[in-house]
Amino acid sequence: MAHGSKKVILLALGANTGIAIAKFGAFFLTASASLLAEAIHSLADTGNQLLLLLGMKKASKPPDERHPFGYKMESYFWSFIVAVMLFSLGGLFALYEGLHKLQELDELAAAGEAYEMNRPEVAIGVLLVAIILEGFSWFVATKEINHLRGKESLFQFIEGSKSTEIIVIWMEDTAALVGLFLALGGVGLVMVTGNPYWDAYATFAIGALLVVIAFLVARETKSLLIGEAATQESQDTIRRLAEETEGVVLLMNLRTMQLGEDEFLAALKIQWAAELTVAEVVERTNDLEHRIRTTIPRARYVFVEADVFDAEKAKLPEFPS
């Protein structure tokens, strides 16, 4: 999965770099606010993809004494930083630029001067080329997601996925493609109606879109960053393996936590039959841990604790008010 995600990120990085350069060039020729918002958006996306690659590299570091469970969650942290950048450098800047454009137009109107967009055909041409390039990047990202999600709906996959990179790239590409159509609509309406305010309105729409996408990306990555459980399928499989083990009286509880895209931690508390010797409990515990890791390779860390069920001890502790 990591290889597929990296391929999609590299493709998006190349596309956004070229698109950002073209958009900035078109902005300097046309002075279109929506084009500037889109140029900054592409620049932010380029930086975001570099951050995702950095996160993937850091996540590949092996465990050490200070981080005994490894660095896999680095990818979640950098994905969250991407959401912050998308919100600030993308969304807030576009909203600011839209407001600035409105003020400029109001000042021109108050002075009795007319605003005229320079060379709008250049803006149209650049936006159409950008739509083609961004559309291809979005198509590749969507194809990878469809491959990974199987029979799950898109919403279920986004909610349950433990890989943030491919989700972030797909959301960014979706926002970029919609933003390009908004910018194209704004410039086109300025040309058709002669009303320059459409350019500012399109800029506001782009800003609002990026803020919403940033919120969704942050929401998905935050859940994993603070400790999300393994998939329900994995938990059900662990429960089945434990309850099938000879000598298990009761699986008292199971706690899991995702440590990265392809690994998680599982902690089980089990009541064993009273007649078993210590040596037998140790042997069956080791066998259970081995079967869990063999059946679910993502269960890299498995801890099984022997205990006797107590109704009072089993209650969850109350959180301090």
Results as ranks from 00 to 15, higher is better:
residue 1 M to D: 13
residue 2 A to S: 14
residue 5 S to K: 01
residue 7 K to E: 14
residue 7 K to L: 15
residue 8 V to A: 06
residue 9 I to R: 00
residue 10 L to Q: 09
residue 12 A to I: 01
residue 13 L to K: 01
residue 15 A to G: 08
residue 16 N to Y: 05
residue 18 G to Y: 05
residue 20 A to F: 03
residue 20 A to H: 00
residue 22 A to L: 07
residue 23 K to I: 06
residue 26 A to V: 02
residue 29 L to K: 08
residue 32 S to H: 04
residue 34 S to W: 01
residue 37 A to E: 02
residue 41 H to N: 08
residue 43 L to N: 02
residue 43 L to I: 09
residue 43 L to K: 04
residue 44 A to W: 00
residue 44 A to H: 03
residue 46 T to L: 08
residue 54 L to T: 13
residue 56 M to A: 15
residue 56 M to P: 07
residue 57 K to F: 09
residue 60 S to R: 05
residue 65 E to T: 13
residue 67 H to A: 11
residue 67 H to G: 10
residue 68 P to Y: 11
residue 68 P to I: 08
residue 70 G to V: 01
residue 72 K to V: 07
residue 73 M to F: 15
residue 74 E to S: 12
residue 76 Y to D: 08
residue 77 F to H: 04
residue 78 W to T: 05
residue 82 V to Q: 02
residue 86 L to S: 07
residue 89 L to C: 13
residue 94 A to K: 00
residue 94 A to Y: 02
residue 95 L to G: 05
residue 95 L to P: 02
residue 95 L to N: 03
residue 97 E to R: 03
residue 99 L to P: 02
residue 99 L to Y: 13
residue 100 H to W: 09
residue 102 L to K: 13
residue 102 L to C: 15
residue 102 L to F: 15
residue 106 D to R: 14
residue 107 E to A: 15
residue 107 E to V: 12
residue 110 A to Q: 13
residue 111 A to I: 10
residue 113 E to D: 14
residue 114 A to G: 10
residue 116 E to L: 15
residue 116 E to F: 12
residue 117 M to E: 05
residue 119 R to P: 06
residue 123 A to S: 08
residue 125 G to E: 11
residue 127 L to H: 04
residue 128 L to A: 14
residue 128 L to E: 07
residue 134 E to N: 11
residue 139 F to Y: 15
residue 144 E to A: 10
residue 145 I to T: 12
residue 146 N to M: 14
residue 146 N to K: 15
residue 149 R to L: 09
residue 151 K to G: 06
residue 152 E to R: 12
residue 153 S to E: 07
residue 156 Q to N: 11
residue 164 T to F: 06
residue 164 T to A: 10
residue 166 I to F: 02
residue 167 I to W: 04
residue 168 V to T: 03
residue 170 W to E: 05
residue 170 W to V: 06
residue 170 W to Q: 07
residue 172 E to G: 02
residue 174 T to H: 05
residue 175 A to T: 01
residue 176 A to M: 06
residue 177 L to V: 11
residue 178 V to D: 03
residue 179 G to R: 02
residue 183 A to I: 06
residue 188 G to K: 03
residue 192 V to T: 11
residue 192 V to H: 10
residue 196 P to M: 02
residue 201 Y to I: 09
residue 201 Y to G: 04
residue 202 A to E: 00
residue 206 I to M: 03
residue 208 A to P: 04
residue 209 L to I: 10
residue 217 V to K: 00
residue 220 E to T: 06
residue 221 T to S: 10
residue 221 T to L: 03
residue 224 L to Q: 00
residue 224 L to T: 01
residue 226 I to M: 10
residue 232 Q to R: 12
residue 237 T to N: 09
residue 242 A to N: 03
residue 246 E to H: 13
residue 247 G to I: 04
residue 247 G to R: 05
residue 247 G to A: 07
residue 248 V to H: 01
residue 248 V to D: 04
residue 255 R to E: 15
residue 259 L to K: 03
residue 264 F to R: 01
residue 266 A to F: 06
residue 269 K to W: 11
residue 269 K to N: 13
residue 271 Q to T: 09
residue 272 W to I: 03
residue 273 A to I: 07
residue 273 A to S: 13
residue 279 A to V: 12
residue 280 E to V: 02
residue 288 L to S: 02
residue 289 E to C: 11
residue 291 R to C: 06
residue 292 I to K: 02
residue 293 R to S: 11
residue 294 T to W: 08
residue 296 I to N: 00
residue 305 E to T: 13
residue 305 E to H: 13
residue 308 V to W: 12
residue 311 A to M: 14
residue 313 K to A: 15
residue 313 K to V: 14
residue 314 A to Y: 11
residue 317 P to T: 10
residue 320 P to D: 15
